[in-house]
Amino acid sequence: MDLSGLTTGWYLALAAALFIIGAVGLLVRRNPLVMFMCVELMLNAVNVTFVALGAGLNDVGGQVAVFFVLVVAATEVVIGLALVVAINRRRAGATADDVSMLKG
């Protein structure tokens, strides 16, 4: 890795750190809302890599990919929050661990 100046590698390292924080958060938090936020963290980490690599390659494709990720993230949040609302209506204050009836 070239440490001189602001190279693409720095962006990637930052994105990796963000991604790992999000992943660990997803694994340890029980509140479904916070779990969704952690997913958003991971998606943003990926967005950073897209934009950084796109800039490095002098290509607008990276930004286009981010645009689509934004849209998908929006739909994901909409459906996810709808699920949270539906589950909470049945059982107030449910965490992700409380919804575990479907098991072997």
């Binding site: 890795m1 690599l53 390659l57 002098n58 290509d59």
Partner: peptide, 24 residues
């Protein structure tokens, strides 16, 4: 991920740069 970022000297060196409409 650290191994990947550290071992690849410069991930973009030698890769063709885009041109035309998609160029930044």
């Amino acid at each position: 991920l650290g191994t990947v970022i550290l071992t690849t000297a410069d991930v973009l060196s030698g890769i063709r740069q885009s041109g035309g409409e998609r160029a930044l």
